[in-house]
Nucleic acid binder design. Structure first.
Lengths: 130, 130
DNA sequence: TCAATAGTTCCGAATAAGCGAACTATTGAA
DNA sequence: TTCAATAGTTCGCTTATTCGGAACTATTGA
């Protein structure tokens, strides 16, 4: 089992952040961690917005957030505590995280179905077959 | 040849925007379109930051930006004119586009190598093989 | 020592991205 | 009109990424 690796602040890229937060499950997890401002273990997200997330997938999502530089993860006994790295990121990319979280919460309020691309490849093909 | 399709403003999602702008080529193209505030045809981006982009790939990138709701594309004669949909997006998700463009320009100034995930899967495997 | 808990890793299947080659649509000659 | 040039799209193949079940690891408390 290799150690949890975190990029140093200089290695955190905008593209990496956007990629990590372009997934509805990950952005939900991250928003939650930011909002609570306290440590979360991973399994508190085994269901996200009424959808069950398999453990292995969840683990990958946490790794994605971690390696994008968005969260700090620390093993404490049998579980892992996760905190947001907002303060650091704010110094480097002021306003970025706030704007994304804010937009995400607006979208939730609007009740928009949060899906990755606005038009998925599968949907395009379905439309084409009609 | 099917028509260029644009999502209506209600169908533009935060995840879609972040996904589209999580690619270094696309974010460079989009920043440029936003900065110039005038129409661009696609081929003006056949090289992006000294890297040649194949025509077919470029076409897909424009489609990604278009279907995420970031740009409006209009055929005019033999070419396509692209404009940013910032004003609309600003109404729905205030500050989002500005923050992303701003962060991107900070990153450019810092000279960080812009790559998608901070740690790519391929890089992880390369590191593991050492 | 053992079982329970929390996460990770492995690996095969499904999905998406990248790009060369062939194609379409428009324009401006000849 | 026909024809070549230009701008962009679509097809189809290859590669890369994601998802998730099953097996594994590490820590704790009985």
């Amino acid at each position: 089992m290799r150690p949890l690796l975190h990029p140093s602040i200089e290695d955190i890229t905008v593209e990496g952040i956007l990629h990590a937060l372009s997934d509805p499950v990950r952005v939900a997890i991250f928003s939650n961690i930011v909002a609570q401002d306290c440590s979360h273990n991973c399994s508190s997200f085994l269901t996200v917005r009424d959808k069950a997330i398999p453990k292995s997938t969840l683990s990958q999502h946490f790794r994605a957030l971690r390696e994008a530089g968005l969260i700090h993860s620390e093993r404490r006994g049998v579980e892992v505590y996760n905190t947001a790295r907002c303060a650091e990121i704010e110094l480097r990319y002021p306003g970025l995280i706030r704007a994304i979280i804010n937009a995400h919460s607006i979208q939730s309020k609007l009740g928009a179905k949060a899906r990755k691309p606005t038009v998925k490849k599968a949907d395009r093909q379905k439309a084409a077959n009609k």
